[in-house]
Lab assay of single mutants.
Amino acid sequence: MDVFMKGLSKAKEGVVAAAEKTKQGVAEAAGKTKEGVLYVGSKTKEGVVHGVATVAEKTKEQVTNVGGAVVTGVTAVAQKTVEGAGSIAAATGFVKKDQLGKNEEGAPQEGILEDMPVDPDNEAYEMPSEEGYQDYEPEA
């Protein structure tokens, strides 16, 4: 019985440690998101679009440190934060509304985080759909 109880105690310690790591990862992701939003706020009209992409990228980098179902929630929060940063930029006159959601080359930025393969159960990952990809044929 002692062996059984000791095993359960060790398992509990492992769960607590994993929860603490997840909590730490979420806190880091939130900190990076805040950094990115402050970065966007300090940019001029020309830099705002690039700044919004930076927020998304920093958040995406930190999301990889967070495991399990938390990833889905962090990704949703990050996307809403990026959308909010863009709205703030438009409201303050840093950028025109028609410039939001495009990178410096004018290509749409939507789907940055949505296409990231995420499995809350950590069982399997699927690649994003290939609808947006084109076949590449090298020139002879």
Rank of each mutant, 00 (worst) to 15 (best):
G68Q: 03
A140S: 10
K45P: 02
A19S: 02
V70N: 01
A19T: 02
V118L: 08
V118K: 09
E137T: 05
E61D: 03
K60Y: 08
A85V: 11
Q79G: 05
A27Q: 15
N65S: 10
A85F: 12
K32S: 02
E131R: 07
K12C: 13
Q62P: 02
A140Y: 11
A11I: 15
E83I: 11
V16L: 12
Q134M: 11
M127H: 07
V26Y: 15
A90W: 14
K32H: 07
E13H: 02
G68D: 13
D2N: 15
D121N: 08
G93H: 06
M127F: 10
P117V: 10
A27T: 03
G86N: 12
F4Q: 00
G25N: 04
Y125A: 03
T54N: 09
E61V: 07
Y39V: 05
I112P: 11
E123T: 08
E35W: 13
E130L: 07
G31S: 12
G41K: 02
V26C: 12
N65I: 13
V3G: 01
K12P: 00
E114P: 11
A56T: 08
G7R: 15
S42P: 01
L8H: 00
A107K: 12
K58F: 09
E114I: 12
V40A: 03
L113K: 07
N122C: 06
K45I: 14
V70S: 01
V40P: 00
K97T: 07
Q109M: 04
V49Q: 09
T22C: 06
K34E: 00
E137I: 04
E20P: 00
A89M: 10
K32P: 01
G106D: 04
G36C: 11
E114W: 09
K10Q: 04
K23N: 01
A91T: 05
T59Y: 15
K60G: 03
V82L: 13
Y39F: 11
L38F: 11
T44H: 02
A78Y: 14
T75F: 11
G47W: 10
G41C: 11
T92V: 13
L8K: 00
G41A: 11
V63I: 10
M127D: 05
M127W: 05
Q134C: 09
M127S: 04
V3D: 01
T72E: 15
K80L: 13
K23P: 00
V55P: 01
T44K: 01
A30K: 02
E61N: 06
Q134D: 09
V66E: 01
E83M: 10
S9H: 09
G84E: 06
E20R: 02
K97V: 15
E13D: 05
A90G: 01
V16Y: 14
T72D: 12
G101Q: 09
V3H: 04
L38D: 01
L100P: 11
K97E: 06
V118R: 10
A91F: 13
Q99D: 11
E130A: 06
K43E: 01
F94H: 04
L113M: 07
A11G: 02
S42G: 06
A30M: 14
E123P: 11
V66K: 03
G51H: 10
T59H: 02
A19G: 02
V118T: 03
T54H: 12
K23V: 05
T81P: 02
T59I: 04
G41S: 12
Y133V: 05
V77Y: 12
L38R: 12
K32D: 00
I88E: 02
G51L: 09
T33I: 03
E126I: 10
V16P: 00
V15C: 06
Q109Y: 10
V52Y: 05
D135T: 09
M5N: 02
Y136C: 09
K21Q: 05
V70F: 04
G51A: 12
S42F: 13
F4P: 00
E57A: 08
E123N: 09
G47D: 09
G25M: 12
A69R: 13
E105Q: 11
G47E: 04
V118F: 12
N103C: 08
A89G: 07
A30R: 02
E110D: 10
D119T: 11
D2F: 06
V48S: 01
E126N: 12
A30C: 07
E13I: 04
E130S: 04
T33N: 00
T81F: 14
V15R: 00
Q24A: 11
P120C: 07
H50M: 14
A140I: 08
E57P: 02
Y133A: 07
P108T: 12
P108G: 02
E110S: 07
V15W: 08
D115Y: 12
V49R: 10
G41F: 09
G132E: 13
V95W: 14
G68V: 11
T92F: 06
V66R: 04
E105T: 12
G41V: 12
A89P: 03
S129T: 09
F94S: 05
A89Y: 11
E131D: 10
E123Q: 11
V16K: 06
E126D: 11
M1K: 00
T64R: 09
M127N: 09
K102P: 14
A107V: 07
A90K: 06
A76D: 03
P108K: 09
K97S: 10
E105F: 12
Y136R: 06
V49Y: 11
V40Y: 07
D135Y: 06
D98V: 03
E61M: 06
P138S: 10
Q79L: 13
E46Y: 07
P117Q: 13
P128Q: 07
A17M: 14
S87I: 14
G51W: 15
I88P: 02
A29T: 05
T75C: 10
V77L: 14
P138H: 05
G25Y: 15
K96T: 13
P128E: 06
E61G: 06
P138M: 07
E110I: 06
E20T: 05
D98C: 14
A124S: 08
K21R: 13
K96P: 05
G47T: 15
G111M: 15
V16H: 04
I88M: 09
D121P: 09
G47S: 14
V95F: 14
G36R: 15
V52T: 01
D135L: 10
E35T: 11
K102S: 01
V77N: 01
A11D: 00
V49L: 11
Y133N: 09
L100G: 09
G84V: 14
K58E: 01
S129H: 06
A107Q: 05
T92K: 02
